[in-house]
Simulated scan of single mutants.
Amino acid sequence: MHTRLFRFILICSLFIGSAISCGQAWAFSDKASASAGSGAAIARLEPFVVNLASFDRYLQTIITLQLSTPELSEKIKVSMPMVRHAVIMTLSSKQGEDVQGNAGKKLLIEELRSRINKAISVKDDDGVVDIFFENFVIQ
């Protein structure tokens, strides 16, 4: 019983800490349009806290998407439920060992990129071109 309470408190504190540190900017970055002049449009997703496949470990992450064009940011906004679903399903299918090293994270980035592009119905080169983890904690 104490273990479950401890885990619950830990997850809540991770989520609240992330929300406080990220402030209002974590929902979706409208700076994607502003960054169009520099050639890199971005979309920042809300934080994710998911059970990993083994259910005894959790992953907390904040993900930023690099988009091929600034116009794609509107498509991401409209498709946000599908995008979040694709990310959650992908992350929760992983074992902690699969994503702890750099090689595992690079494979995860490619899988997420492919699944998000599929969710928003675009070809890989026309959609999300890269993914950046701003936070990546496994507990």
Rank of each mutant, 00 (worst) to 15 (best):
G37T: 06
S38A: 05
S38Q: 08
G39Q: 03
G39A: 04
G39E: 04
A40F: 05
A40L: 11
I42M: 05
I42Q: 06
R44P: 00
E46N: 11
E46Y: 07
P47T: 05
P47I: 10
P47Y: 09
P47R: 11
P47F: 09
F48M: 10
F48Y: 14
F48P: 05
V49H: 09
V50P: 02
V50K: 02
L52E: 04
L52G: 06
L52K: 02
A53Q: 06
A53L: 04
A53P: 00
D56L: 04
D56M: 03
D56P: 01
D56F: 09
L59D: 12
L59R: 08
Q60K: 13
T61D: 09
I62Q: 13
I62M: 07
T64Q: 15
T64I: 10
L65C: 05
Q66T: 15
Q66D: 11
Q66F: 13
L67W: 08
S68G: 14
T69W: 01
P70Y: 06
P70K: 15
P70S: 14
P70A: 15
S73A: 14
E74P: 01
E74V: 10
E74W: 07
K75T: 14
I76S: 12
I76H: 12
V78Q: 13
S79N: 15
M80K: 08
P81I: 02
P81G: 05
V83M: 08
V83Q: 10
R84N: 05
R84F: 02
R84L: 08
R84H: 09
A86R: 05
A86Q: 07
A86P: 09
V87T: 06
V87A: 02
V87C: 07
I88H: 05
I88K: 10
I88E: 10
I88S: 10
M89P: 00
T90G: 11
T90S: 15
T90Y: 03
L91S: 00
S92M: 15
S93D: 05
S93G: 11
K94H: 12
K94V: 09
K94R: 15
Q95S: 08
G96F: 07
G96S: 13
E97R: 04
E97I: 06
E97C: 02
D98A: 10
V99C: 01
V99I: 15
V99A: 00
A103E: 09
A103G: 00
G104Q: 01
G104F: 01
G104H: 02
L107G: 02
L108R: 11
I109T: 10
E110T: 04
E110Q: 15
E111Y: 04
L112A: 07
L112I: 06
L112R: 07
L112V: 08
L112E: 07
L112S: 09
R113H: 05
R113I: 07
R113W: 04
S114F: 14
R115F: 07
R115T: 06
I116D: 04
I116V: 13
N117L: 12
A119V: 13
I120M: 15
I120F: 14
I120G: 09
I120E: 11
S121Y: 15
V122M: 07
K123W: 00
K123H: 01
K123C: 00
K123D: 01
K123E: 01
D124K: 12
D125F: 07
D126M: 15
D126G: 07
D126R: 14
G127H: 06
G127Q: 03
G127K: 04
V128G: 02
V128M: 05
V128W: 02
